[in-house]
Amino acid sequence: MIALAPPPHAPPSDAVALAPVLRRRRSAVLPGFWPSAAVTSLVVTTMVILPLTVLVFRAAALGPAGFVAAAWTARARAAYGVSLSAAVIAAVASSFLGLVVAWVLARIEFPGRRLLDALVDVPLALPTAVAGLVYSALYVKNGWLGQWLVPVGIHGAYSFLGIVLVLVFVSLPFAVRVVQPVIESLDRDTEEAARILGATRWQTFFRVVLPALAPAVVTGFALSLARALGEYGSVVFISGNMPFRTEIAPVLIVARLEEFAYAEATAIAVVLLALSVTLLVVINVLQQRLAASGH
């Protein structure tokens, strides 16, 4: 049992007298500020701030000319291009496919709905290396899907398309899970009103439903893009990693590290980091808007 004797540092023990004080500065009486602040700041400083600061300082030490020379080689530019274009295409595809899946999960009752809902989470739990390995095995010439697709000229393995495929896989849950609760919370009366006033089904969807979903879809797109830009594990298995053609930026960083070309690896990493941080800021703003709009 909790001891009833007031501790030595106790504030006025009269609960009635305490109440207004609590309401004004409700945290002042709870213990554990300093210990939790110490643990949190220690971990955040050593695990997040220090490594990323060291990275940026190492890159800065190259000097402007040195940095550009290291980060802007022809091969690096090609890698940014592959990374960005594959991530954007994958995020667009994920947003669209995710919208369909989210709509079905939120609006339609059908046998197996719970199973479908659970399967959407698989990419979050399945190690990316497994995803990459399996996708490449499926889409090669004698793979399950490749035996039908390769003869018609669709190369899903060791190609740009392969990169997009695995990026759609890893980013799909983000696209679905951001949109799904918003569809569930949509007010159907508005849709009803639109239909009563003579709008067709498609007009209702594009003029009434889609504008309401737009913030969530855009947030899902940004989250998918952030996830896709940094992805390494699955891509390295399926892309073939051909410089200038299917080499993404993270793969180039690893290649440079293996050659002990630390300066170049660091410079490319800082470019990638800047992209991710920018996206993170955008996502935060989008999510605040989403929260402000009532979801």
Partner: peptide, 16 residues
């Protein structure tokens, strides 16, 4: 932040 940073970049930072 660790969600947005590419794991490869994180690994490189630790190496540095």
């Amino acid at each position: 932040l660790p969600f947005s940073v590419s794991p490869v970049v994180a690994g490189l930072a630790l190496v540095l």
